[in-house]
Write a protein that binds this DNA or RNA. Structure first.
Length: 222
DNA sequence: ACTTGATCATAC
DNA sequence: GTATGATCAAGT
């Protein structure tokens, strides 16, 4: 399958996934379904990418560079509420000039997102794809994100690593992002000293993505 | 129940 | 090590 060449083609493929179980999509692609995600955390996301004809991995930037669209699966419960926060990108650390929201890596990631809800079920194989939603931040959403970016990027630039925790931010938050808690990077702290801390990344809070998905009244087609 | 910190696999 | 894809599991 070639990559979707237009937004319409992408959305047609996405709609074709709606209502299908992960087992059905995997079978069509000749892929095994793991018993659970504990050691295959990105499996559903990769499965959906393959189902949409997106060439997985090997490139950075949006999933569809030509269309400028990022595809994200999001696990939701039976009520349609997100079960998890959403990974955005690695956070720049150390002394740097926090640029404006407009040119930030967070905005680059979130400018256009095709949300693919994955509805919870007793087993992984039985989970179904919900109704896809192509999202662009509204003016209000963008303002919230811009403000979070301003405050969080300032914290990062200041170098006070004790403040690099998950409790800041209304929509965006900072969280550790590494293979293990022991992973360390070097940064210049607020006193100009080199210190070691763990890498951080930006995540979207579940509250925020819940408000996005709320636009789609029915997450599962009849 | 929900949030925060920790973790898993794979490609390059 | 960085970036892709995320969820797990401890803490509150």
């Amino acid at each position: 399958m070639s990559e979707p060449q237009s937004e319409v083609e992408l959305l047609q493929r996405a709609d074709a996934c709606a209502g299908r179980t992960l087992a059905e999509l995997a079978a069509r692609l000749g892929l095994p379904v793991p018993a659970d995600l504990s050691r295959h955390k990105g499996w559903a996301g990769s499965l959906i990418e393959k189902a949409l004809g997106i060439e997985a991995h090997g490139r950075s930037g949006p999933d569809l560079p030509h269309l400028g669209i990022e595809v994200k699966t999001i696990p939701v419960n039976r009520s349609g509420k997100p079960r998890e926060s959403t990974w955005v990108c690695l956070a720049p650390v150390g002394s740097f000039n926090p640029g404006p929201w407009r040119t930030s890596p967070v905005r680059a990631k979130l400018a256009h997102v095709l949300w693919m809800p994955i509805l919870d079920a007793p087993t992984l194989a039985e989970r179904r794809v919900g109704v896809p939603l192509l999202w662009m931040p509204s003016a209000d959403e963008e303002e919230v994100l811009a403000q979070d970016w301003a405050s969080l990027s300032e914290l990062l630039a200041e170098g006070d690593v004790s403040q690099w925790h998950a409790r800041h931010g209304e929509a965006l938050q900072l969280r550790p992002k590494a293979a293990a808690a022991a992973d360390r990077i070097w940064v210049v702290d607020a006193d100009g000293e080199w210190v070691r801390t763990n890498p951080r990344g930006f995540y979207l809070r579940a509250r925020f993505t819940a408000s996005i998905l709320h636009r789609e009244a029915r997450l599962l087609q009849p």
